[in-house]
């Protein structure tokens, strides 16, 4: 199951969605077509924004680093940050903002502790370059990589409750040693404090 399919499952029919770093709008388009969930995407890249307009997806050309002041408190059911967390400079304020404007946040990112990445650093001695992390260290949009453990620690610090976690590799889910064997992580979190 792909990440997009999993997110689509999580989003309730008719829910209001904000997709941060929405790319060409394919997720939003799918959420509308399959769940009748209306939404907006936030994107900064000109080519992606144009693709969104072509895809008839509501897109707002804005910089996530400037915050989400355009959006009112609790105005969305889900705020999605898909494959964008690692490209943000200030994750902490953004995570807080996401749960100010949304009831729940859905966050996905490549797991930097995936064994293939670990091997490249530990044995080959260079920054990992792979299907999940396709960039050279000197030419990458990614600035803050993290692992499952790191992200969960941040959630703990911010008092966020992890409602659901799915770890993926090659389209399948990983339940055994996820921080080692999982290439991708997908979380659903809320601001409700963990019991």
């Amino acid at each position: 199951m792909t990440e997009i399919e999993r997110i689509t499952q999580w989003v309730a029919p008719g829910a209001r969605v904000l997709d941060l770093g929405c790319g060409n709008g394919s997720l939003l388009k799918r959420l509308w077509q399959t769940r009748r969930a209306p939404g907006y995407g936030v994107e900064i890249d000109d080519a992606h924004v144009l693709d969104c307009v072509k895809n008839d997806v509501n897109v707002l050309q804005m910089n996530l680093e400037d915050g989400l002041a355009t959006f009112a408190d609790a105005s969305f059911d889900y705020v999605i940050l898909s494959e964008t967390l690692q490209a943000i400079h200030h994750q902490e304020p953004l995570m807080k903002e996401m749960l100010r404007v949304g009831r729940e946040a859905i966050v996905s990112f490549p797991n930097f502790a995936y064994w293939r990445a670990r091997i490249q650093i530990a044995l080959a001695g260079h920054m990992p370059v792979s299907k999940e992390l396709p960039y050279q260290w000197y030419d990458t949009p990614n600035v803050h990589h993290c692992t499952l453990i790191d992200f969960e620690a941040l959630c703990g610090k911010l008092g966020l409750k992890i409602l659901e976690r799915v770890v993926l590799r090659n389209g399948g889910t990983v339940s055994f040693l996820p921080n080692l064997l999982g290439a991708h992580a997908l979380y659903r979190v809320s601001a409700e404090r963990a019991q």
């Binding site: 000109d46 969104c52 997806v57 707002l60 050309q61 804005m62 355009t70 959006f71 105005s75």
Partner: peptide
């Protein structure tokens, strides 16, 4: 323009916004 966009979002209008550099 962002003020207009915000007001439209507050009203849940369908809106896209382009900020051309």
């Amino acid at each position: 323009s962002r003020e207009i966009v915000k007001a439209l979002l507050d009203n849940r209008r369908i809106v896209s916004y382009l900020e051309i550099d």
